[in-house]
Design a protein around this nucleic acid. Structure first.
Lengths: 351, 351
DNA sequence: ATGAAAGCGCTAACAC
DNA sequence: GTGTTAGCGCTTTCAT
């Protein structure tokens, strides 16, 4: 980014003072006489001087920049979280750079921003990181200020901010049980972050709590995409007896599942109840609106930046793990099973 | 990002070589014997060495990082464009940092990244920039590698990559005219980037081309938001005679307008035809699917990175202005006016 | 109140 | 092949 950058030396020369004096006049630290200060400022102005942030940082200062690494910026949830972070970072007078890695954090990625960008920021946030164990180990060993968000695939010594997937999922499934459902299916998502596994754990716990068996054919594998939810739904609704409720590991899959149900002529929520996770915008506008769970993104962003800044500033009171309960959002896609039991068998397609 | 950063000096010491040798071994430049190289690499690995990007840059090198400044990362279009940029940047073996400014680029913003700009990245992309004239002037004067995307509020000497709003809008309105519409309304968006103004210019041109008068009550002011589209729609549909078609400066407003129409009991496209701009995902799923226009984002991203890199690398063949025609996407929200002329007056709410 | 020197981590340019 | 010197632009000592 250099054209013919004006340096402090030139400013000092023009003002007829030592470099150090110019530095003091411009940064505002230390004693400088009013007269000299004005002289220096005038010279700087005339020359169009802009301090070189890099040189300043290299003296051991901070960059005042935090970075956030995301895998999929087009995800509504990630996007919303990043926006919340942007707001939050401002309170600390820091800037936030977003890095969209779009890939698994493997050796190549490690080389790229683990090394190349080293020194550019004061701290780093990883949102839903898909990191290899090696990468994680390297990060743990580095001692750099880092916070992981919604990473629960395996234990780590790094600070983590989490939404409570397990209890959220358990509550959701428990509420289905309370509505009389017994054949409750679950659609898994990808395994990367461990979120799907946690939600599945909650599902199984709720079933166990209610003394209900889990037929393994009720547990379908998806990839968090709407399409995978549709396919999973087709498979699930082909079972006999058909599950009366489906809990999907995220909203996209739940909406795909909703389309599968509709294509089979099933009525919602009379024939089948549906629950998702995340509360994406599409959940509200769906017909019927989707019952779902949501993480308190604003609170999580607040905690994330707070924890990170504590580490950057070497402040006490850091927590290794901060977890927030998920909120359940009841909408029209769930209903007591008793609503229309007679219609339950209508137009079921036999596999 | 510094805790107790490992430096080249430590690596060199551990490997028992001079700092310069270590530098060569790691960067891969210059002659180093296979043996020494391995020794150094081993030492670096053991210490968990990561080169300090800042120091490297300070020697006058490049950061291999491009930056993109956006105002609203949650906008679907912006998001899609940034994703395209991310892909494109990779071809040049560069990294892309995203900076979400969320605000107008005024003096304060200028101080923040205008300074960071100084050295942190090799080039900068501004997407739909909302910059003050002063900021623009400063940028023009700086001589830094910069590309503006979809900025057409005023002429500039900076390189610009644009989607053709004027001709796109003109074609869209012309197609409405061809379908027999004469009372065609327009909903403006915010003025920041000049895109709305260009689309309005296209609208007026198409009307003039067809010899149709523009009743100024047909031109409503919105803010690019769905809500503003809804309100504009309510006002437009209260007119007597009612416009038979509405061209909104973006899809969100068109969809808001669609809701306004539906709330009034108007049928689409029989009673009113609707055209948007941008082709957001919601346009396809709307009922009826929205006819709209779209900029070729992938091509634009390609041109943007190419132009920027030419400037970064001081390559010849730079263009100051690259413009791409918009594509029209015909969907169900537009129809010839003749379809159901008899129904046109049904349930119109008089103001 | 001001100046001189040293050094942040790295690499181009020359020695050897 | 490898080491030495110098210096990027700035600020932190320590003098004056």
């Amino acid at each position: 980014m250099k054209k013919q950058a004006v340096t402090l030396v030139q400013v000092a020369a023009k003002a007829g003072v030592a470099v150090m004096t110019a530095s003091r006049a411009i940064s505002g630290d230390g004693y400088v006489s009013e007269e000299t200060r004005n002289k220096v400022l005038a010279a700087a102005d005339a020359l169009g001087y802009a301090p070189n942030a890099l040189a300043r940082v290299m003296k051991g200062g901070r960059t005042n920049v935090l970075g956030v690494v995301v895998n999929d910026l087009s995800s509504v949830v990630v996007n919303a979280f990043v926006s919340a972070l942007t707001e939050e970072v401002r309170k600390y007078e820091m800037d936030l750079f977003i890095y969209n890695s779009s890939v698994q954090l493997d050796e190549q990625a490690q080389r790229r921003h683990g090394q190349l960008l080293h020194g550019l920021w004061d701290g780093l946030i990883y949102v839903l990181p898909r990191m290899t164990d090696e990468y994680l180990a390297a990060l743990e060993a580095s001692g750099s200020p880092v916070v992981l968000v919604n990473f629960c695939r395996r234990p780590t010594t790094l600070p983590v901010v989490l939404g409570d997937n397990f209890n959220g999922a358990r509550d959701a499934v428990a509420s289905l049980v309370a509505q009389g459902h017994a054949r409750i299916a679950f659609i898994r998502g990808s395994h990367w972050t461990g979120q799907s596994a946690e939600r599945e754990r909650g599902y199984r716990q709720a079933m166990a709590d209610a003394g209900l068996p889990v037929d393994e054919r009720w547990v379908a594998q998806g990839t968090f995409s709407e399409k995978s939810g549709l396919e999973a739904g087709q498979a699930l609704f082909a079972l006999d007896p058909r599950p009366t409720a489906v809990f999907a590991a995220n909203d996209e899959m739940a909406l795909g599942c909703m389309n599968a149900a509709r294509a089979l002529g099933l009525r919602l929520p009379e024939d089948v109840s549906l629950v998702g996770f995340d509360d994406v915008p599409g959940a509200v506008t769906a017909q019927p609106p989707l019952t779902t769970l949501r993480h308190p993104l604003a609170l999580m962003a607040q905690a994330t930046v707070q924890e990170l800044m504590r580490r950057v500033l070497h402040e006490p009171g850091t927590r290794q793990r901060v977890e927030f309960p998920a909120e359940m959002v009841m909408r029209g896609s769930t209903a007591p099973i008793a609503t229309a039991p007679a219609a339950a068998k209508r137009r079921t397609r036999k596999a």
